[in-house]
């Protein structure tokens, strides 16, 4: 792997064997974990992008990476239907068989005691030692979203047809929120009060978790796969268009309140993330641009950075000081903000 400076000492570009499908910054900020479609999983030095460790990864392609909350373990998943566990420095500890489906999503429990994997139509949860603790097979369609509901010990999955709630040790869903439509992505608000989904039919759906009451936002240009909740304010940023739409969930919620449109990208936006604890939003798009937006009274674009290729996936470090974005041809760019 070549590492080149790209104009600024605070920026690096890593050339990987293939597209970086998933990115995850280590909680302590020392490294970026990368899942590549070529199969290997890499640990790259956060400062310079140099390769700290490389694992053979997953036959057919690696699709997911996730760090345990304490940063001592890394999990990866891929098209081989397997999950691998590594220590902080990238040494492999275990290989677990999830299913014959692709492992597309991984989520560590808030306590770090177990890691959940969505593999096609199956959900598997293992202890950090690699012992299978939960196994849910009732899915009729591929799982498209996976997270632990903040403040609870429940897992939530999404697929075509709605949301499913899972408790550790139970092989069946403990609750469902049905919705006839194809959910592409699902994310909880920071305290879990709301769950938002982006959908194939160019809508965003939001449930109030406790009551199950829902509302729907439409008018998007395309399918919506880009969602980001803000920690510092009750805001939900969505794309599904060349502009970003920010919904305000404060007060009585977004119904009847016009959302804010953030225009600047020239083509499809591919990923969004708020910087931790701030009202600053990062977006990347097919127009090769990375933009940072800030709300101070009004929204404003405060940074506009260009990469050499269209950008598709984005990861923000836990301290909010670094971002990494994956582009075409295995090109991965990191900026210090």
């Amino acid at each position: 792997m070549l590492v080149k400076g790209a104009g600024s000492s605070e920026t690096w570009v890593a050339l990987l064997p293939d597209f970086a499908q998933a990115l995850a910054w280590a909680p302590d900020g020392h490294a970026l974990a990368v899942a590549t479609l070529a199969g290997p999983v890499f640990l790259l030095d956060a400062e310079r992008g140099e390769r700290l460790a490389a694992a053979a990864g997953h036959g057919g392609g690696a699709l997911a990476v996730a760090w345990s909350p304490d940063g001592t373990q890394l999990a990866s998943g891929g098209q081989d239907g397997r999950v691998q566990l590594f220590d902080r420095s990238g040494r492999r500890q275990a290989e677990l068989e999830a299913s014959t489906g692709w492992v597309t999503h991984l989520a560590w429990s808030p306590t770090g005691e177990c890691v959940a994997a969505a593999a096609g139509k199956k959900l598997r949860v293992w202890s950090r030692a690699g012992e299978l603790v939960t196994d849910v097979d009732g899915y009729e369609s591929t799982i498209t979203g996976l997270f632990w509901l903040p403040g609870t010990e429940q897992l939530v999955t999404s697929c075509y047809g709605g949301l499913q709630f899972v408790t550790i040790g139970k092989p069946e869903w403990v609750r469902r929120l049905d919705w006839k439509g194809s959910i592409l992505v699902a994310k909880p608000s920071p305290k879990g009060r709301f769950i938002a989904t982006g959908n194939q039919d160019a809508t965003v759906h939001v449930w109030e978790t406790s009551s199950g009451k829902d509302l729907q936002m439409s008018g998007y240009a395309w399918k919506v796969r880009e969602l980001a909740w803000c920690e510092a304010a009750p805001l939900l940023a969505t794309a599904g268009a060349p502009s970003i739409t920010v919904w305000d969930f404060g007060g009585k919620g977004p119904a009847g309140k016009p959302p804010t449109e953030l225009s600047g990208h020239e083509e499809r936006i591919t990923d969004l993330a708020f910087l931790p604890g701030s009202e600053r939003l990062v977006s990347v798009g097919v127009d090769c641009a990375l933009r940072v937006w800030q709300r101070r009274g009004k929204w404003k674009c405060i940074r506009h950075l260009e990469a050499a290729t269209p950008l598709h996936r984005l990861a923000v470090s836990h301290d909010g000081r670094r971002v990494a974005a994956s582009g075409d041809d295995g090109r991965l760019t990191s900026w210090k903000l």
């Binding site: 293939d18 597209f19 479609l37 369609s141 039919d201 598709h312 295995g330």
Partner: peptide, 24 residues
């Protein structure tokens, strides 16, 4: 959700082709 048959698509193909198109 709108029930229109013309909007019936193959979700598996969208996922797989999305993955193939990203490849170097």
């Amino acid at each position: 959700n709108n029930g229109c048959i013309c909007c019936t698509v193959r979700g598996d193909l969208i996922r797989i082709l999305g993955n193939l198109m990203r490849r170097k």
